[in-house]
Amino acid sequence: MVNTPRSHWLAGGALALTLALGLAVPPAALAQDKFIVVASTTSTEQSGLFKHLLPAFKAKSGIDVRVVAQGTGQALATARKGDADVVFVHDRVAEQKFVEEGFGIDRREVMYNDFVIVGPKADPAKIAGSKDAIDALKKIAASAAPFTSRGDKSGTHAAELRYWKQADIDPQAGKGTWYRETGSGMGPTLNTASAMGAYAFTDRGTWLSFKNRGELAIAVEGDNKLFNQYGVMLVNPAKHPHVKKELGQAFIDWITSPDGQAAIAGYKIEGQQLFFPNYQPVRG
């Protein structure tokens, strides 16, 4: 072709692109066999638990863990497509379905935390200090006090819906008035609740690490029903052959090992323990 400064320009652009791609791709490519992708939930990521756990695991195993934090529903969908090696979520019903469908294997219960109901200090539904979550939800519905729900099919959302069911209330009837679905993660939902002076159902971990509380405070806690179990499982390599079976299994083994369990128990915010390890080898 015609040899003018323009061809240098084009050649330069092509060179720059090659260089840039060259710089950009290798880190991922080189680390290829030393990392796993864990599809997990916003509650574990945002509470800072992973930041606390992963360096310990890395030191022990040399494996990088890349956490994609989504709602439980989305995390399971990601894993179902084969885009993760390990799933670490909290919705026992959905998890069991996931395993039964053959997408996950070796499900283990790892730890739990608890849910709380937070609400404005003014407490329009008069539930503050209660230990009965079902009764509190009934009072919220009866007083039509604003309530923000995640509405995102996450583990927390699924749990919230179960409690509404136990209270024999269909919150969908309150849609458009007092029951408001944000369709987003726990944090954004709490931001909304804080701004609107609404009640919300949240896991304690996210709540403790949440900074924009405004007028919100814990209204209901300590109900045994508010128990929130986390499970971990390997994405089935039979379904998705590229799953990093050994590395993923190493993570699952570690987090259910005495070391891993101790690391979970050791994570505290403001002196409060957020997650309680409860792996039972027999059930594994």
Binding site: Q46, G187, P188, L190, S194, F210, K211, N212
Partner: peptide
Amino acid sequence: ALETSKGDL
């Protein structure tokens, strides 16, 4: 986006 959802505005 993450810091926003953590409420650390």
